[in-house]
Design a protein around this nucleic acid. Sequence first.
RNA 1: GGUCCCUUCGUCUAGCGGUUAGGACAUCGCCCUUUCACGGCGGUAACACGGGUUCGAGUCCCGUAGGGAUCACCA
Length: 511
Amino acid sequence: MNKKVRVRFAPSPTGGLHIGGVRTALYNYLFAKKYGGDFILRIEDTDQTRFVEGAEEYIIESLAWLGITFDEGTHVGGPHAPYRQSERKNIYRQYAESLIEKGYAYYAFDTPEELEQMRERLKAAKVASPQYNSITRNSMKNSLTLPADEVKARIANGEPYVIRLKVPRKEEIRLYDEIRGWVVVQSHQIDDKVLLKSDGMPTYHLANVVDDYLMKITHVIRGEEWLPSAPLHVLLYRYLDWEEVMPKFAHLPLILRPDGNGKLKKRESGGILTFPLSWHDPITNEDYLGYREAGFLPEAVINFLAFLGWNPGTDQEIFSIQDLIQSFSLERIGKSGARFDAEKVKWFNSVYIRSTDTQKLLPLVKNALSQRNVTGFSDEYISRVIDLMKDRVVTIPDFYGLATYFYQEFDQYDEAMKQKQANAENIQHWQALLPQLKNLNIWDATTIDRIIHDYAEINKVKIGKILPTLRLMITGVSFGPSVPEIMALIGKEKSIQRIEKALLLWTQPTG
RNA sequence: GGUCCCUUCGUCUAGCGGUUAGGACAUCGCCCUUUCACGGCGGUAACACGGGUUCGAGUCCCGUAGGGAUCACCA
């Protein structure tokens, strides 16, 4: 009885897909999957001047990494192909012309200069919002003011023109938004929007309405920045006689900058990441680090993003994408903008790393290591490092950055720690313990641990006094996993060497 | 500036007329522990303001203030 749910994500390939767009895609995806519907990728590339090489591929790859897949789209095809608006160019004109026939649109020949003059004139006359509308259109060059044969002649001569929507002077336009409820706008606040540009391409307004209709889209879920133009779209559906099948609208709250000052932009300071994958902008030549390259897990990014504007109404915070599909609903999307919280993504990531299987983490960690030219360690070895470090890291590179001592030798020691630990008494204890360690035939954490504990007991010294010294000798730092575990993993040879080296260094006068 | 949208701890939020205003991140303290984490326990911390409506308002209405979006032949 109800129509099959069909939603679309419709980015324009003008650059890397940023995190707000990702969330829009995610909500569309969750909504589609929740109701067993279709999710469509439509590329809105009607502005040929803003085309950016590689952007479309980037968008697809980013969403694929996050586990967001499409049922129809430029890359997978589908019954409504093509899905790239530039390739659909010839289907929009007929709709624009049908509006002219019905008296809902008109041809306009004004040059950019003339438009600019008109705006200047209105501004000078203190008009709050200068626009091409029911009043100003009468003093402009268009098919409403020009004689019919001149219009015909101009078009025949190949003079550039646009088609504009003839927005009524005084009409109330009501629009029901699934998130915000009824939104009422007076038509005089909307200008006579260009529908078809002089290069023959449709503008967003025409293209999105025509395509949503042709592709049988049931719900338009998009960012709040579209809310002001939504009434215009309602008008278009009405004039095209499609109001009966007009999709439902849901305008998502914006993702705000961490300081709350405006919506999140592509370039953000403060080290916050706004791209899913690293992106090189071919226009500006700028490089942006992505979540993937920074060592975030896609599941964590998804979980974080899902909660930026939506919540399940329960205390559960950790949701797999399947959980999200099950729990998602438009009703539980908030109305107000959500600030991006860099700390919270990190938290989600650490939670996901902790609960992800070591073997799944292994290739990611190996990749991070090889990028730092750390090679020659077996999968088994790295897996043990992961096990030991798992609940201490925030991102994948931390498996190196917080654990360098598993992979390489060092001669720097945490200064504060050294001041405290490298005293004569501790050095003496380890000079005494060293031979015992050397004598060990079995080299595992339990045995090492027992030797140290036995020594501590016999010599009546607190374990808490001598163990930190050992940590400093073995790792150079003051924190990390169990020292005997580390020693067991790096092996007897390296462990002994590091202790000897430290003892030597610390007993030298120059220390 | 016009129009539209929004407003609960520092942040994300629960709340849909009667709550000790709940949870999470962050932060602080305690416990666990050789350390750092993890985990556990606890603390600090919010209804922007002013009017109504009502027996009763974070919840409904109206103002004010603040924030945001938008005002192109860009999406």
